[in-house]
Design a protein around this nucleic acid. Structure first.
Length: 266
DNA sequence: GCTGCATGATGAA
DNA sequence: TCATCCTGCAGCA
């Protein structure tokens, strides 16, 4: 589930549920028992996100840092909350709301200096476009320094923070770029186009609570099939929506990538 | 009921 | 490049 738009949604949802409230914290699974005890009963001051990272600030406690990784999940409940599964790493709750976190890659308490180090190694986040350091120029400078294929660069969180495997495939299709082109060989107009499209698509993802890159939102009934919402992701051997040619798939930077060889020629 | 895969990232080799 | 972390679920029998 988690590319940047989803993390951004979690941040705003958790802000709405818990900000300025005293929050109960437990770790049914036990692996975060000490951390949960440390923040239990504290007041949540703020929730920030950068790319795929979440930071929860408390009154008189360290910052909670969460990264969902590939299969981490939050579930939230308003009136009724079921018992957490035994694998639930962290439960945050008040009288009126409860959130269950399972399967995160990272769930830890950190000092401000550690947060600084994490943020320092992250590239600009298109969902923070406009705020300090998150702009097209920083992104362009990051790309210029890399000879790796653009398809690898867009997954590198130090280059741009928040894109994942779906957005990388879709952005390369929509900008007509061959995933194998070296990042530093892409001309500046194209680089600006990639950034602008990232901003646009992530914002759209936040609005729809899903990654949608096709022009028209399909009818509700067919939205369960993710392939109806995108141009190339997981559409290998299906016809390209634009030219009718066959969508191809290969491996790039350790992940599967899909592209249209005709629309994305060098 | 079981298998294998998934929108991620790291550390060892 | 590969194994590993760790959970849920689609797809299959």
């Amino acid at each position: 589930m988690p590319e940047g738009h989803a993390i951004h949604l979690y941040a705003s949802e958790h802000r709405k549920l818990f900000e300025q409230q005293s929050v109960t914290a437990t770790s049914p699974q036990g692996r975060f028992a000490a951390g949960a005890a440390r923040i239990n009963g504290r007041t949540l001051l703020a929730v920030d996100s950068h790319g795929k990272h979440l930071f929860y600030r408390w009154r008189r406690a360290e910052t909670l840092h969460v990264h969902l990784g590939l299969y981490g999940k939050f579930r939230s409940f308003r009136s009724y909350a079921p018992a957490p599964t035994p694998a639930t790493r962290l439960v945050l709750s008040t009288d009126t709301a409860e959130v269950h976190l399972a399967g995160p890659t990272v769930c830890e308490l950190i000092e401000p200096s550690a947060e600084d180090r994490i943020r320092a190694r992250l590239g600009p986040d298109p969902l923070q476009a406009g705020s300090a350091g998150s702009d097209a120029a920083t992104f362009a400078a990051n790309l210029r320094r890399r000879r790796i294929p653009i398809g690898a660069a867009l997954l590198d969180q130090a280059v741009i923070a928040g894109l994942g495997n779906i957005y990388r495939a879709e952005i390369l299709f929509l900008t007509g770029l061959d995933p194998q082109i070296p990042a530093n060989e892409i001309d500046q107009d194209k680089v600006a186009e990639i950034w602008d499209l990232s901003v646009k698509l992530l914002r759209r993802g936040v609005r729809h609570r899903a990654i949608v890159t096709v022009k028209r939102m399909p009818p509700r009934a067919s939205r369960r099939d993710r392939r109806k919402l995108v141009h190339v992701y997981q559409r290998d051997r299906l016809p390209c929506r634009r030219c009718g040619g066959q969508i191809m798939a290969t491996e790039l930077a350790g992940r599967r990538i899909w592209w249209c060889p005709a629309c994305q020629a060098r």
